[in-house]
């Protein structure tokens, strides 16, 4: 018994003693070079949101020799892991990109501890303003209005659908936008939605798409990353099913793809990182819209009739000139603090 008590004391004391061994600070910034860190809850090669954002950061680094992408932490899916990752990155980088809506609370925890580091939060806003955090979002719902109108026009059954990962505002915005766009094209068109809770789960995406197709849906928008493959497979099984992507054109991936609600995350990230490194990105919320060029709807080569292309242009211009105003749920909730629409 005495031996065990001694062992317990030893087992507890060693790590506590080690805690006092202070290592050298990792917070050094190299003269003349601005270090940039990047953290994402998804894999860096997800073929979608994370990959495009990372490409934007890389583009900013390539364009400016004084910028350096020092570290990438990906697959940080859990809150504590996100906080640990952001803490590690903040200690050695001047700019830290937190790429994902789910990182909002983790950024709120870490940012106040590193006032000299500028945090760029992507696709979500903070609950309250922090002076060293800029949250960057894109009004994807505006693009969804155009996609919804085109899909409605393309649909024979007048049933269209949207499949996304988790049911979060940045995803539901696609559904509400499609609903508004479809109603603008044909009031009878029905829009359904499904969430797989994982942007990269091919199996779940295939199941969701097959269920929609079984219910008569013949046009499906995929707000997924590598999970889109499941929708392609389901569409292959039912002739006449059209698929729409988001973020970028993936026309070579499947012959059923009609077009894409392009969200140019790469350009958005390039702009945000460049401005943050130069100290010109304001704290608060910044939303990129149609005017910034971050959004557009594009058809795959050989897809879309002239009437559909004209419809896309017409809806886009009506959104831009304000004759179509976004319905509820199309735009992300606006924060109460400093907000800039670009």
């Amino acid at each position: 018994m005495r031996l065990r008590i001694a062992l317990i004391s030893l087992a507890t004391a060693i790590p506590v003693a080690l805690a006092g061994c202070d290592g050298n600070s990792a917070g050094e910034k190299t003269d003349g070079v601005t270090n940039i860190g990047f953290l994402a809850p998804a894999p860096r090669n997800d073929g979608g949101f994370t990959q495009y954002a990372l490409a934007g950061v890389q583009a900013a680094v390539d364009a400016d020799p004084t910028l350096k992408l020092t570290s990438i932490v990906d697959n940080a899916a859990e809150s504590q892991q996100q906080i640990d990752g952001l803490t590690s990155l903040a200690a050695k980088n001047k700019v830290v990109v937190a790429d994902g809506a789910v990182l909002n609370k983790a950024v709120a925890v870490v940012a106040p501890k590193y006032p000299d580091t500028h945090f760029v939060l992507i696709a979500s806003d903070l609950e309250s303003l922090a002076n060293n955090v800029s949250s960057v979002t894109v009004a994807v719902g505006l693009n969804a209005i155009v996609a919804g109108a085109v899909a409605s026009n393309q649909s024979k059954s007048k049933k269209i659908g949207m499949i996304a990962g988790p049911e979060v505002p940045s995803s539901t915005a696609w559904y509400y936008g499609m609903k508004q766009g479809a109603a603008a094209e044909n009031a009878q068109t029905q829009v359904s939605q499904a969430y797989t809770n994982d942007y990269n789960d091919v199996g779940k995406a295939k199941q969701a798409a097959e269920a929609m197709i079984a219910n008569g849906v013949d046009q499906i928008l995929s707000d997924l990353d590598s999970g889109s493959t499941g929708i392609y497979q389901a569409a292959d099984g039912k002739a006449g099913t059209g698929v729409y992507n988001v973020f970028a054109l993936h026309c070579d991936d499947n012959p059923n793809i009609i077009g894409s609600g392009i969200v140019n995350w790469s350009d958005v990230l390039k702009t945000a990182v460049t401005e943050a490194a130069a100290g010109k990105l304001p704290a608060g919320a910044i939303s990129f819209g149609l005017k910034s060029g971050a959004l557009s709807y594009q058809f795959c080569p050989g897809k879309g009739t002239d009437a559909q292309k004209a419809l896309a242009e017409k809806i886009t211009s009506q959104i831009s000139d304000g004759s179509i105003t976004p319905a509820e749920g199309v735009l992300l909730p606006k924060p109460s603090y400093a907000y800039e629409q670009r």
């Binding site: 809150s79 789910v102 979500s124 979060v168 505002p169 909730p333 924060p335």
Partner: peptide, 18 residues
């Protein structure tokens, strides 16, 4: 848990599952 963080216990500004 997935239901709770989207339903009764959901409490983040932009309706994240938290």
């Amino acid at each position: 848990l997935a239901w709770l963080v989207r339903g009764p216990l959901q409490g983040s500004l932009d309706r994240q599952p938290q």
